[in-house]
């Protein structure tokens, strides 16, 4: 499972890209579109994190037989 470190970079990259897109859209005068873009970016990041969280919680559940 050493794929994890790439995921951290991906998440940071997505966060930065969404912020840049947001700025560009704001400059272009479409504030609400920029808001939508940053929301989409955050949702993608949260989905990736939730996938890892579910993997962790399942393995902990089987490990400690909670």
């Amino acid at each position: 499972m050493d794929i994890g470190i790439d995921l951290i970079f991906k998440i940071a990259a997505i966060g930065i890209v969404t912020a840049i897109v947001n700025q560009m859209l704001n400059k272009a005068g479409k504030e609400e579109l920029g808001l939508m873009a940053s929301l989409v970016g955050i949702i993608i990041v949260v989905l990736m994190v939730v996938e890892k969280v579910s993997y962790l919680f399942n393995s902990v559940k089987t490990l400690f037989d909670l």
Partner: peptide, 10 residues
């Protein structure tokens, strides 16, 4: 600096 949510998610 860029976006708080991404930082906490990282």
């Amino acid at each position: 600096k860029i976006s708080k949510e991404a930082a906490s998610l990282v």
